[in-house]
Computed example of a mutant assay.
Amino acid sequence: MLHFPSANSAAHRPSPRDVARLEDLFDDDVWAFSNCRVDAPGRPVAEVDWIFYNARHGTLMVSEWKGFPQRVALATDTGTPWLLEGGMAVSNPIEQVSRQLDAVRAALRGGILPQHFPAFDALQLRIMQSVYSPQVDRNTTIERIRWGKVYGDLPELAAVIANSTSPAPLLLPDAGARLELAKALCALFRTTFPHEAETKLRVSPNGGDTDVVLRISAIHRQIAALHGELADLIVAAGMRSSPTPPPAVGTAPLAAVKNPQPKVNTAHAAASQTPALTEYQRMQAHLTRSFQGVNGSAAAATKALEEAWRSILGDPLLHGESGISVSLFGNVGMPLVKERHGSLPKVLGMPLRKWCVLQAEAAGLQPKDVPGKPSNLRVR
């Protein structure tokens, strides 16, 4: 996701947790403008929580995010207030987002469409609208709403933004036009334009048709897929390996056998002769596999570390006499996060050993200290 936060230092900021979750759910084709201020001629200035643009599908969404003191019991269409659990009535956010959408539509028609989509019929402009509230759950009664939808689940909302198409999409003629459009939208919505966004949107100056950013992203995904496959093969080979049994008493040595031997699958034979994996290699295989496809955000890195540690807790070959080595886990995991996020404690928000203990307890285990091995944990 390309995130363009408000340029107003006094404006509200979205929750870092929400931003990290969105970055986890979207690729860079989704542009997210947060806490926008939209000033359309003849209309009141609109304060908009989120405006999403899917550059790949050419779709737009205006989204109002609401937090309520109680669970939402009834979400209605325009004309009536919403009801919270306990009977409290609150202003209808569907009405609010509808006014915001009118301002955004007018602003886009007045400047963006003529400049960046000159052949587009402005009357065909379609913009989705939504309300997201964590206080909406499966027990909330949601009346039929004519325009827009209400969401209480962030992945569900993100799936709509990522996958919806439009009968009249706002599609740019080439990837090279994305940079100028992004800058124009930031100016219109009064959001900042981060340097990393420009780096991702700028294409090669050689005039080729290849979108360099997308191609680099694709290469990284291919490399990650290969690393994941390699990790699976390493673990599988280690599980198949076993010591060669001694020959039975009285049998002839192999060289004395005259009859030709049947051909064997060389790949299987090589795998069966693979030496048992070292503790380091097994730890590395778990971490490499969990980091496959990670998009680079701190939240995604934390999730990958959680998955790797859970799989390590479930790997009986890493539960030696001295327990599981937390320091080895840190040594293997550090290079995967250091370049982007710094140290593991910084990513996790606490010392690594404390985090490992909490994760083990959350998995229903009872981690214990190992005498003489202060960095190790025994969980069985």
Rank of each mutant, 00 (worst) to 15 (best):
Asn331Arg: 13
Ala10Glu: 10
Ala46Glu: 02
Ala184Asp: 06
Leu154Met: 15
His3Ala: 09
Pro205Phe: 12
Leu171Phe: 10
Ala46Asn: 02
Arg378Asn: 01
Cys36Arg: 02
Arg215Asn: 08
Tyr280Gly: 00
Asp211Val: 15
Val347Thr: 05
Leu317Asn: 07
Gln222Tyr: 05
Asp18Glu: 15
Thr251Asn: 12
Trp82Thr: 01
Pro16Glu: 00
Arg282Asp: 08
Cys36Pro: 04
Val337Asp: 02
Ala300Thr: 04
Leu123Asn: 15
Asp209Lys: 11
Val136Cys: 09
Tyr151His: 09
Arg21Ala: 01
Arg109Lys: 10
Ser34Cys: 10
Ala75Cys: 13
Asn206Pro: 04
Gly79His: 03
Gln284Ser: 07
Gly330Asn: 03
Tyr53Ile: 03
Arg37Phe: 10
Leu170Ile: 02
Ala103Glu: 07
Ala362Gly: 12
Arg146Cys: 01
Ala224His: 04
Gln284Pro: 06
Asp121Val: 12
Pro69Ser: 12
Leu317Cys: 06
Ser6Ala: 13
Arg310Met: 06
Leu277Tyr: 03
Val203Ala: 14
Val370Phe: 00
Arg37His: 13
Ala267Cys: 08
Ala89Tyr: 06
Ile145Glu: 00
Leu365Ala: 13
Pro5Tyr: 07
Trp147Arg: 07
Gln366Val: 05
Ala231Glu: 01
Gly333Ile: 06
Ile324Ala: 04
Val264Gly: 15
Ala299Asn: 01
Ser15Leu: 09
Arg215Glu: 09
Ile127Ser: 02
Thr210Met: 08
Pro81Cys: 02
Asp39Pro: 02
Asp24Gly: 15
Ala159Glu: 12
Pro114Trp: 07
Arg37Leu: 04
Ser98Tyr: 02
His12Asp: 11
Trp50Asp: 00
Leu101Asp: 01
Asp27Cys: 13
His116Ala: 12
Val332Ser: 00
Ala285Asp: 05
His220Lys: 14
Thr140Ile: 13
Gly208Val: 11
Arg378Gln: 14
Met283Thr: 08
Arg109Leu: 11
Gly58Trp: 14
Tyr280Ser: 01
Asp27Glu: 07
Phe4Ala: 03
Val62Trp: 02
Pro316Asp: 07
Leu181Met: 05
Pro69Ile: 15
Gly250Ala: 10
